[in-house]
Write a protein that binds this DNA or RNA. Structure first.
Lengths: 334, 334
DNA sequence: AAGCATTTTGCAACCGGTTGCAAAAATATT
DNA sequence: AATATTTTTGCAACCGGTTGCAAAATGCTT
């Protein structure tokens, strides 16, 4: 069917090895030979079979991209950056959608069967032990948006969630709120736990401010909306730090519905700063998570691990900053 | 490194072929043999190498998924449905991001090098000739969201865009608008052209209603917003049919900003019905495009083509329906 | 128990490439 | 011009599987 190395070799009247070498840079081939082979290859429309060569080289240039966040708009940005970044480096993303909570173990098998060179786990809700499964299977892995543990077993790239929680608390303080709340994402997610820990530890230093907390079931508009509806039923706080932007938007929707006004009656602070949060009809004040840097760094790390699989695990954390928009009251002067 | 067929064969004390057959269903193996092999495989943690076997079987179970819409939230839904649907059938999506308008030709090479079994082109803005490139290269291809041509050369699954344009026009008529407009997506996209053609042909039958038209530069919030800002500068129409939901939301944002009210002062009709359009703080009246059905059908078609590569090309079109929400004035009684 | 049909197994070649090694060719040295 | 050195080339084995074919094993008849 397709044109193979052998066909080219025959047409060029050379050995198969010669053809192979002509397509491998750095290989030992004379200019004359290369020319001859390239001519024959062009005539026949030959393309080397990447999978066949992977068999001997042990490199497929396939990178597994595992995620379970196919309902959060920010992940479109994440996929865009990952797929572009990988293909710019000659790597191919092989996507694994873990949305329906099928056995994560199976995904490890699956990706191993396709001999991916490495795996990126892009999720803040998958457990650290999941990423570890790949490492245990000797597959280089980076946990993007993962937890910064004191003794990380896999590479983590993301933000310091504890610090992000503190930052949220400090914002509330600066703006003079008296009763605030943490409305987190799924309680089982490490990101939620860490942010809450940062938030409450910072709050502990401000005894004048009361704070409460609750959790949404998942990172989705609907979950945010439902949770805020519930909160509004009884004595809501003055400002909420929501688990992420999509939850924030759900919360805003619930607030609008009651006729309460943002930021006058209730303040909302998100986290992520997805493109949509900038939209003028959303205009969400949020903690900016530098996903471009996080993803580029993840890719660089992946590339480095291809040559150095047993690289000592590290955590690469990027600082967040507040993206000031219209859902929190202004900072008050002292 | 990894456990191979040979290792299993040695441990089980059988031939390599026996092991291979034990892992191929429908192959000629005795129950006893299978048991023995499975035991050895389990002991060693053996997983067959999908790529190696593809070499002889000619099937990789890799499906190329090509798109250039990584900035339109509906594509997150599209990717979710595609990746889940494919992997539920034991197929693996290999993503190709054409966002930065790199040479599309290259993507064909790329996917051929990885011996994908078939390709899905998921885009309404890529030209029909692009999809055809795959067919010419003997790669089964389905153009999802493609144009329904009278003599289709590749399989197309989507909606009838001409009819969708007509439907939009009829909605405007039913609601008694006197001056309406078409605010399309990129003019070069076949979907835009077809919708406009349907829209204007239907309008031609209603001489009492004036209509105008314009086009946004791309399918994005910003482009929709800018275009609507421009339109609002001089004598806007009473209702706009926008190229898609994300353009509509951009338009809504521009309208809100001027203090005009929707749907009282200006009506907006979108197309797609992405999840977000249902959000209470957006609440967009839009033409529902049944993407779940479109994508499932695309996948079924792809699967069918694996066994029948030269299948006669067909167009599978799904009817749209209006999703009534809050951005058009109600239907008027006669 | 012998003879035949059927099932199961292993051999060996193959899929489309890569690569270590030694022979051949080209170039440099004296 | 003969020899030493370096570069280029082809041979053959290999990567991890699959598969047609024939031999071996099993099951069935009589």
């Amino acid at each position: 069917m397709a044109v193979t190395l052998k066909d080219v070799a025959i047409r060029a009247g050379v050995s198969r090895s010669a053809v192979s070498r002509a397509f491998t840079d750095g290989a030992s081939v004379s200019a004359k030979m290369r020319k001859k082979v390239e001519k024959a290859a062009a005539d026949l429309g030959y393309r080397p079979n990447a999978l066949a060569s992977s068999l001997t080289t042990g490199r497929t240039k396939l990178i597994g991209l595992v995620s379970n966040n196919f309902h959060n708009p920010i992940f479109l940005e994440v996929f865009d950056l990952f797929t572009r970044g990988l293909q710019d480096r000659g790597l191919r993303p092989l996507i694994m959608n873990l949305s329906d909570d099928q056995d994560p173990e199976k995904s490890v098998d699956m990706l191993k069967q396709y001999s991916v060179d490495a795996v990126v786990v892009a999720s803040s809700t998958l457990s650290p032990s999941f990423a570890k499964t790949f490492r245990d299977a000797n597959v280089p892995v980076v946990h993007c948006f993962g937890r910064n543990s004191s003794s990380p077993e896999v590479h983590v790239v993301g933000i310091d969630n504890v610090e992000a929680g503190r930052m949220a608390a400090r914002e509330f303080v600066k703006r003079g709120y008296g009763r605030v709340a943490f409305m987190g994402g799924p309680q089982s997610a490490t990101s939620t736990q860490d942010r809450f820990s940062g938030f409450s530890s910072e709050m502990a230093g401000h005894s004048g401010i009361a704070y409460s907390y609750s959790f949404a079931e998942q990172y989705s508009f609907e979950a945010g909306r439902r949770e805020m509806q519930r909160l509004l039923e009884s004595d809501p706080a003055e400002a909420y730090f929501c688990g992420d932007d999509v939850l924030s938007i759900g919360a805003l929707s619930a607030i609008n519905e009651t006729g309460l006004r943002v930021p006058e009656d209730i303040g909302i602070l998100g986290l992520n700063d997805m493109e949509m949060s900038r939209w003028e009809n959303i205009d969400l004040t949020t903690i900016h998570q530098p996903i471009r840097q996080i993803i580029n760094s993840s890719i660089e790390l992946i590339v480095a691990m291809l040559d150095e699989p047993d690289r000592y695990p590290e955590a690469r954390l990027f600082p967040c900053r507040i993206a000031e928009r219209g859902t929190l009251r202004p900072v008050v002067d002292l």
